[in-house]
Simulated assay, not measured.
Amino acid sequence: MTSKEMAGIAYKAIDEKLGKDIKIIDISEISILADYLIIVNGTNISQVQAIVDNVEMRMAENGIVNKKIEGNRNSTWVLMDYGDVIVQVFMPDDRLFYDLESIWRDGKDVDAEEFKKVP
């Protein structure tokens, strides 16, 4: 499975749980950490956890195992590492504080519409 297909599965899982302000950044040309970084807001801790749970479930259904998850059920920020795809789920204030979009500004913003077409 390609990293783009993996990112597509994660994107769809996030979208199913109505994640807000989804940002997909292609970091393949500037980092050895991953190919895609997906950043999303949840509106409350319950939604953050619902997004995390759904991403885990959809990725596992497709045979993709996470390498590491940072954060827990009460976290306002959760990092999910799938190797070539990293998903970061935030509460809005934490997202502003960490400002990952600025840190990874040399990456390429990817239109989410591209991932709606990925199987």
Rank of each mutant, 00 (worst) to 15 (best):
M1Y: 09
E5R: 13
M6V: 00
M6F: 07
A7P: 12
A7N: 06
G8S: 05
I9W: 09
A10R: 10
K12F: 03
I14N: 01
I14W: 07
I14Q: 07
D15Y: 11
D15C: 13
D15I: 02
K17A: 03
G19S: 09
G19M: 03
G19V: 07
D21C: 00
I22G: 02
I24D: 11
I24V: 15
S28C: 10
E29C: 01
E29W: 00
E29D: 12
I30W: 12
S31M: 11
L33K: 04
L33Q: 07
L33R: 04
A34Y: 07
Y36P: 12
L37D: 08
G42F: 02
T43A: 00
N44G: 00
N44T: 01
N44P: 03
I45K: 14
S46K: 15
Q47G: 04
V48L: 13
A50Q: 04
I51K: 10
V52Y: 04
D53C: 06
N54M: 14
E56C: 06
M57D: 14
M59R: 00
N62C: 05
N62L: 00
I64G: 05
I64H: 07
V65A: 13
N66F: 05
K68D: 01
K68F: 05
I69C: 03
G71L: 05
G71H: 10
G71D: 02
N72Y: 09
N72R: 06
N74G: 15
N74I: 02
S75L: 09
T76S: 15
T76G: 13
T76L: 10
W77H: 04
L79D: 06
D81A: 11
D84I: 03
V85G: 06
V85R: 08
V87Y: 02
V87G: 15
Q88P: 04
F90S: 09
R95F: 01
L96M: 14
Y98M: 05
D99R: 00
L100N: 12
S102N: 15
R105M: 01
R105Y: 08
R105I: 01
D106R: 08
D106V: 06
G107D: 10
G107E: 07
A112H: 11
E114S: 15
